[in-house]
Amino acid sequence: MTMNILVVDDEELARQRIQSLLQENSEYKICAEAENGAEALMMVERHQPDLILLDISMPVMDGLEVAKHLSGMPNPPAVIFTTAYGEYALEAFSTKATGYLMKPIRQEQLLKSLQQARSLNRAQRSKVLDDNEVTGAGRKHICARMRGNLELIPIEDVYYFQADQKYVTVRHKQGEVIIEESLKSLETDLADKFIRIHRNALVAKSRITGLAKNNIGRVQVKIEKIDDQLEVSRRHVAEIRRFVRNR
């Protein structure tokens, strides 16, 4: 059975090289290409590839962040990272991707990695990505589905996240969307940029302008440019007051 492959690299010559290495091998078919991580996620939705040859260092969204978003998909493809920079190896392996290739990629190494990936079924690939340990240190986007399409929201545009049962509302500059990520995972990934004010809410640190009390004496955060009223729980009041005072 032919394995469908998505090739993701911001350099056209690199994509062409992979094409040339596989062009005479009927076991593998390049079903699509992408030149950055954001485009890669769109191509995954559109073409449902079995595997991605994924460059790590790219504009817009790097390969490690792509792997993070893939982990939330119901049937993720296998991932083989490609890069010219050896210092990414440790972080790439922490994602438990099925392979890691250094550029310039040699045909023998490529075919060996593809064969290893072929041995995993979809359920096994999903488990590999579910077990990944990619942190949110380099995460720059929130990935949401809108009317069947993927929408990428820059982290810097987000005002707050608010949980309601299994869903989380993302309030951002252009409006709001609902995602299925947990508030806990968002807090872990984005701890340097967001602060918890309530068991159901994280607010962007840079967006908090002060505190106020509502008409029944409950403390609320004031958020720049929007009038949304988010309550600070008693458990978090002291921490939020310290944060506002010391910023």
Rank of each mutant, 00 (worst) to 15 (best):
T2D: 06
M3A: 02
V7K: 08
V7I: 11
D10C: 04
D10L: 01
E12T: 10
A14Y: 03
R17C: 04
R17E: 13
I18Y: 03
Q19V: 06
Q19R: 15
Q19K: 14
L22Y: 03
Q23I: 12
N25M: 08
E27I: 00
E35Y: 08
N36F: 00
A38N: 10
L41F: 03
M43D: 09
E45Y: 09
R46E: 15
H47L: 06
Q48D: 13
P49A: 07
L51D: 08
D55A: 02
I56P: 04
I56S: 06
S57Q: 14
S57V: 03
P59D: 09
P59N: 01
D62Y: 05
L64K: 01
E65K: 07
G72A: 13
G72W: 07
M73E: 14
M73G: 02
P74E: 15
I80N: 04
Y85E: 12
L90D: 10
L90V: 14
A92H: 08
K96F: 15
A97R: 06
K103M: 07
K103S: 12
K103L: 10
I105V: 15
Q109L: 11
L111N: 12
K112I: 06
S113Y: 00
Q116N: 11
A117T: 02
S126W: 02
D130V: 01
D131L: 13
V134Y: 04
T135H: 08
C143S: 13
G148K: 04
G148N: 10
E156A: 14
V158K: 00
Q162A: 07
A163E: 11
K166Y: 07
V168C: 08
V168M: 09
K173P: 03
Q174K: 13
G175D: 10
G175Y: 10
I178Q: 12
E181H: 07
E181G: 09
S182N: 02
L183S: 05
S185A: 10
E187L: 02
E187V: 00
E187Q: 13
E187N: 05
A191K: 12
D192T: 14
I195P: 01
R196L: 05
I197S: 05
R199I: 02
A201G: 05
V203F: 04
A204F: 04
K205N: 01
R207A: 12
A212T: 12
G217W: 04
Q220W: 03
V221H: 06
I226C: 12
Q229Y: 01
R235L: 11
R247M: 12
